[in-house]
Simulated scan of single mutants.
Amino acid sequence: MTAPYNKPLPKLDALTRPFWDHARQGKLAMQVCDDCADIHFPPTPVCPACLGDHQSWQIVSGDGVLESWIDLHRAYWPGFTDDLPYRVCIVKLAEGPLLASNLVGPSEGAKLHAPVRVIFEQVTDEITLPKFRLAGG
Rank of each mutant, 00 (worst) to 15 (best):
I59N: 06
F19Q: 00
S68V: 07
I119S: 07
V116F: 05
V116K: 02
A3R: 12
C50D: 15
V118I: 09
V104Y: 05
W20R: 02
L93W: 02
Y76V: 13
D13F: 06
L93C: 14
G109S: 15
A23K: 01
L99S: 04
D82L: 05
A14Y: 07
S61N: 14
A114K: 08
F80H: 03
L51N: 14
D53Q: 09
P4D: 11
V65T: 13
P10V: 10
F80P: 01
G79I: 14
T128I: 10
G96K: 02
C33M: 02
G79A: 08
F41S: 03
A110Y: 03
P78G: 12
V65H: 11
P97W: 05
L9M: 11
T81E: 14
W20D: 01
L9P: 12
L84A: 10
L98P: 02
W57Q: 05
R74A: 13
C89T: 15
G52I: 10
L51S: 10
E95T: 05
V65M: 08
S61Q: 13
K27E: 00
S101C: 08
P43F: 02
D125G: 15
D83Q: 06
P115W: 00
V91G: 00
V104M: 14
C36I: 15
K111L: 10
S56W: 04
H73S: 09
R87S: 13
P42I: 05
V46Q: 10
H73M: 05
L66P: 03
L15C: 14
T44F: 07
V104E: 12
A49V: 13
F19I: 01
I90H: 10
S68A: 15
Y5I: 00
A100M: 14
P45R: 12
L66A: 08
H73E: 11
P106E: 13
A3T: 14
W57D: 03
L28R: 00
V32W: 00
P130I: 08
S61C: 12
Y5T: 02
E95M: 04
V118P: 00
E95Q: 11
I59E: 15
W20M: 03
C50K: 07
T16I: 05
L103K: 03
A37E: 07
H73T: 12
W69C: 03
A100C: 09
K11L: 11
V46H: 09
I59Q: 12
G26M: 07
D21H: 06
A75P: 06
A114L: 09
D13W: 07
W69T: 04
